[in-house]
């Protein structure tokens, strides 16, 4: 595996590399070099199986991380190729020409994360959310609770109690609240 990393590093600039398990490694590459790396891994290094392509939203860094999970049947190792892309106007090169099922993931990411893959077949088609009008729901800033409260209604008559507050009410209601620091201007 180390040799493979060396070989790739000779080709392109590798931003990060880590070993999670004996059969699972991750590398991080530049966005522009992804296609090159993937086709090299597929055609020359035996990483022929694309297990999945998925995104992770790092909202605080304004980045999406795309993970292309590859597998090599001979050395029996999974290799995750990570790419960080900008979150606003998120766009990525399509790899539908490398794997015949990649378009499916790209269509999903387009719908659930709002990442565009120009040229990917049927990328605009809806995948699971026909008629969805909100923001792409897998983005971190989509608030599922707020959405469901807006869309559905609660079963009437439900209420709960916090043991802490309830016991205060029942047992030491008159216990004074902590004094505030009083200053000169009051």
């Amino acid at each position: 595996m180390e040799q493979l990393v060396k070989r790739i590093n000779g080709m392109i600039h590798l931003k990060a590399y880590n070993r999670q398990r004996d059969d699972l490694f991750f590398i991080t590459v530049e966005k522009s070099q992804l296609e090159l790396v993937l086709s090299h891994l597929k055609n020359n290094e035996g990483f022929t199986h694309l297990a999945f392509l998925q995104a992770v939203d790092f909202l605080e860094d304004s980045k999406f991380q795309l993970t292309y999970m590859l597998y090599n049947y001979d050395i029996r190792v999974n290799l995750g190729v990570k790419v960080l892309i900008a979150r606003d106007k998120a766009e990525m090169t399509s790899i539908h020409k490398l794997w015949a099922h990649a378009w499916q993931y790209q269509r999903e990411l387009h719908e659930l994360f709002g990442i565009n893959f120009p040229g990917s077949p049927r990328v605009e088609e809806s995948f699971v959310l026909e008629g969805w009008e909100e923001m792409p729901p897998m983005r971190r800033d989509f608030d599922t609770k707020e959405y469901s409260e807006r869309t559905f209604y609660q079963r009437p008559g439900r209420s709960t109690n916090d043991p802490k507050e309830y016991m205060k009410e029942k047992m030491y209601k008159n216990y004074a609240a902590s004094p505030r620091i009083r200053r000169d201007d009051e």
């Binding site: 709960t160 309830y166 016991m167 029942k170």
Partner: peptide, 16 residues
């Protein structure tokens, strides 16, 4: 939900 129940007193160590 946590609800008060008739006959269950709030005492030290038991919210009731």
């Amino acid at each position: 939900d946590l609800v008060p129940v008739e006959g269950q007193e709030t005492v030290e160590g038991d919210s009731g």
